[in-house]
Simulated assay, not measured.
Amino acid sequence: MVLIGKCEEMCSEAEKKLRYKEGLLHILEIKKGTEKNPRPLPDPKRVVKCFSRSAAGRESNENELRTPNALQRTVNYLLLDVADNQIISWNNTYDFIVDRLLAVRQDIVIQDISRSYTISLLQPIVKFYAYSAYRLCESPISDFDPVLNKKNLQECLKKLLLIYDDFDYLQSKIGVLKDFCYNQEEFEILFSDCRQFFEALYILFNLGDTHCIYRGLKLEKKWRTNLVQNSIKMSLCYKNGNWIRLCRMMVKLPPLLAGIASLHLPEIRRKTLEKMSIAFSSKNLSYPIETLQKELLYGTKNELIFDCDRYGIKCSQSEINFIKTDFDKFSKLVSTRKEKFVIDKFIDVKPSFVLKSNTF
């Protein structure tokens, strides 16, 4: 039997009381002015249901399950208000939001919420994981686990794409979607206007993956927009080793997609440098460092020089000397870094703006 949530708040009264009693309120959930109290008071408008794993023999309570509207308000609050907070660091903000989003996803699964509501909830959640993947890419593993974040992003993104596929199937069979969405006009904005972004995100996040390329190619023509087609071309460039063209296309992407694509740059650069070490191998000739800096989207010469040193390539401030026997194939891949061309795209842009469903 599928339960139907009855809780209209971001957190049930029972959980608020329990967490207050046990001193388990997060700093972002505490009522202002009571922070220094021995037991700070909860702010009813800021307390959000936390994630707890389902225990064997423990049944879900419909009074603790949030309704679709309550879940929508929760996601909006987390990604449009909490994401911009100045109280704690963004690493800690990330931890708080991730936990509360896991609880949201849990409530969605338990209730088997309608596809339209699930789309409106998953789209901003996917954006959050994607934004975090780029923003926290330089953080130590103790502060941010990129593997776990990737897992969450892939799970939510694949579920979203499956619902898109359901839409295509139902529309082809019955032509109309009266039972598919709660508000046709709002659904068109959420679905039609935003789908291209998430289709492109799936391709770019899994750059070079044959399955993702195939999915993009077999999409209906109306979904294969320029953004999706360019993402497919970039993935094919990655698969075929056309690194320079891939980088030229990368700089033209919207901010969040550029950030996601840039996470592949360490591997792209390593493969390019290895290939050039063979193709341009010469004791008498050199390659202009400024040219390669621009081609591989390095923000500074020193970043390129650092990578060359890592892989055993001799270089100076003006030129690189490629010798195929010098390249160290066993050296560790350079860590991901925030790239200047992406940083420039995010200047003066708040997280809440990036995380809105209809912005990309």
Rank of each mutant, 00 (worst) to 15 (best):
D145K: 06
S316H: 04
R337L: 04
V147E: 15
K16D: 01
K252E: 12
S235A: 14
G208I: 07
F306S: 13
P68Q: 04
I313N: 15
L207A: 02
N61H: 08
K32W: 01
I4G: 01
G23A: 03
N92A: 03
F205G: 06
K294A: 10
V126Y: 10
L80W: 10
L41H: 02
C315Y: 09
P288F: 11
P140V: 04
D143G: 05
P255V: 13
I125T: 13
Q293Y: 08
K233F: 07
A258H: 03
E62C: 10
Y287F: 15
L219V: 09
I189E: 15
N358F: 02
D95Y: 02
I174P: 00
K16T: 10
K127H: 10
A103L: 01
L121C: 06
E185A: 14
K150M: 09
L121Y: 07
R245F: 11
C156F: 01
E199G: 02
C7H: 07
V2C: 05
L201W: 03
S318P: 01
P146H: 12
Q154V: 11
K239I: 10
K350A: 12
F180R: 04
S120A: 13
S357A: 12
K221H: 09
A55L: 10
E29I: 02
F167M: 05
S262H: 04
I189K: 15
M1P: 08
N242P: 00
K31T: 03
I213G: 08
S282I: 02
K314F: 13
V2R: 14
K178P: 06
Y202G: 03
F198S: 10
S120C: 07
K151R: 15
R19K: 10
N91F: 12
F205C: 07
F191T: 01
D309M: 09
C315P: 06
E295A: 09
K340A: 11
I347D: 06
L190R: 08
S60R: 08
S335W: 00
K345G: 04
L257R: 06
Y214F: 13
C181R: 00
L201F: 01
E274L: 09
I189V: 15
I278F: 13
I347G: 00
V147N: 12
L263A: 08
I4Y: 08
F197R: 04
I203W: 11
N206Y: 07
I305E: 12
F346Y: 14
V104K: 03
E220V: 07
P140L: 04
L3E: 07
T67Q: 13
N37G: 05
N149R: 11
P38Q: 03
S331K: 13
F341I: 11
R135N: 14
F353V: 07
A55W: 02
M250Y: 01
D95M: 04
I141D: 11
E290C: 06
L285H: 15
E155P: 00
L65T: 05
N37Y: 15
S139T: 01
C315S: 15
